[in-house]
Design a protein around this nucleic acid. Sequence first.
DNA 1: GCAGGGATTTTCT
DNA 2: GAAAATCCCTGCG
Length: 193
Amino acid sequence: MSSRSPASAARSLLEAPTLAVARGLIGWRLSHASSEGTTVGRIVETEAYLARDDPASHSHPGRTERNASMFLAAGHAYVYLVYGMHLCFNVVSGPVGVGEAVLVRALEPLEGVALMAARRGRDERRALCDGPAKLVQAMGIGREADGTDLRRGRLQLLPPEPDWRAPPIECGPRVGIRRAAQLPYRFTARGSP
DNA sequence: GCAGGGATTTTCT
DNA sequence: GAAAATCCCTGCG
């Protein structure tokens, strides 16, 4: 069909509609090169937050100082504080100025597992990155990552390896929200947390 | 293994 | 002043 390389096709995913990005990001890798070392994890669970007909989205009430990064170009990071003590990491999607993003809910640890465990203060591999705030802590992502370009900075999004086989992906309701909780905007790699 | 509640602070009404 | 895209520990079966 396409004459483009798989890597190029993968990169163009970020320009796709947000629901397609949320599904397509399953299998991508998140890499963070920090002063402590490098950690890499594979995305195994995501949630889409849209700009229209989605009252659960942070962009729904309009643009504010907090959600400003959601309105950047696709492929930027949106990092915010929830519950006064945890951070969540999102990949901005959709056209510039629209306000859509994909929340990364879980990773499978690939590299720097010992560093992840040290940051998290516990050893059990399963528990390192199986929640949106957990993976932010394990990867050492801070609020300074908010608004950065995920194709260029220390925090980078990498397409799946060419030989990586996509697992079956399940779709269901989002987690931890009240409004529009029934919308099936959550994507999970089967066999993951 | 599962249910329940506390921690903690930013953000918007 | 209330709610929030959560996590962890405790108590109980």
